[in-house]
Structure formats: C-alpha cells, structure tokens
Amino acid sequence: MTFTETTWNEAKELAGRYPHSRSALLPMLHLVQSVEGLVSSDGIALCADVLDLATAEVAAVATFYTMYKRHNTGKHHVGVCTNTMCGLLGGDAIWNAISSDLNTGHDETSEDGKITLERIECQAACTHAPVVTLDWEFFDDATVDGVRKALSDLREGKEVKSTRGPVIKGLQASERLLAGFDDDEFDAPAIDEKMLAGLHRAREVGQTLPSSEV
C-alpha cells in the first residue's frame, strides 16, 4: 500500500529523535505496523527510504523480532505467556482453552479475523503470573474464565480494560503507542504491594545485596 504523507512525516519525526537516525528503526517498524497491521514490503521500503538503509538491512531486523508480523493480523492480539512460571501457574491451561475455543494455533488468526493468538515469552511480570497480554496491555493474574470473558467481550465490541487501567483498543492502536506516539492514557503505577513482597521479606530477615566491589 502507499503510505499517507502523515505517516511519512511521522517516520521522519521518529528519525529526528535520535542522535543516529538508524536508532529509530525499531519504533518506525511499529509505526508502519500500526498503519497496516503488519510489516509489509512497502513498510520495509518506507523505513529503508527514511533511514537511508538497504531494504535487506531493514528486513533483517523485521524478521528477527517476533513482535513485527510479516503476515496479516486480527483486530486484537492475544499473548499467553507459557514460560515456566506462568505455564505452571495456569498459563498452559489458558493456552489450551483459548487455542481450542478459537481453533487457532500459535501466531495464527481466528477465522473471523478478530484475534491473533500467540504463545509469548516472559513479560517480566511473573509476580502476577499467569500473565496474558491483550494488544500488549497486561491482563494480570489471569484465569481461564477471565480471559474467556474478556475475549468474548472484545469480539462483541464491548469495552475491555487492562487490569492496569487502559482500555483495549486494538493491536494497531497499541503499535502506535509502541512507535512512540502517546495516547495520553497512563498505565496504573507499575509497582504494587505484590511486587514489593520480596523486598519486605528481605528487610525482615536482614538480607542485603552483596557489595558490587569484587
């Protein structure tokens, strides 16, 4: 597809944010994905053009990171963490349930085109395991029923909120956020009591970090 002048200008704006324009490649790939729902050859060409790179150099990056999709995606992206901690605490059960509900495997899109399902790697939120992401917003302490309800609401077009606050607006909206264009909706404070439990316990028993000097 042909990108609009707005997208070109936004891409150039991103390039201007860094001392070396090449650093803008990762956000720029999110930007083209926010427009098309995937990183197409045209999207790669746009990044290469703005950053004066060869298209192969951009393709090398786009094919390395799994968050960049080289195929069409659904309206929403659902990530289920199945790494050790989340998997044991219910992630595997959630994956099995959702995957069978949607009749959709890893990195595939449901027939109605609403949801792309993906097994994801650790999101650094093990405190709230098992973790599911909806358009990369956290759905903490997830349960099979909770995720089923959220997905059914999303498919019916009802409002669904992340457990940390923001409304789930679709993958393309989140991609725009990842590209560095803020939607002015702030996440809830990232630190809660559950996250600090370990610190409190360490203080109770008088544990400290070893000195950094060897």
């Binding site: 060869a54 192969a56 090398a60």
Partner: peptide
C-alpha cells in the same frame, strides 16, 4: 552494498 543480510535470525 548491504543488500544482503541475515534474515529470520534463529
């Protein structure tokens, strides 16, 4: 001429 690159790393 960086028109070739390592793709699909992994």
């Amino acid at each position: 001429d960086p028109m070739i690159a390592l793709l699909e790393r992994g």
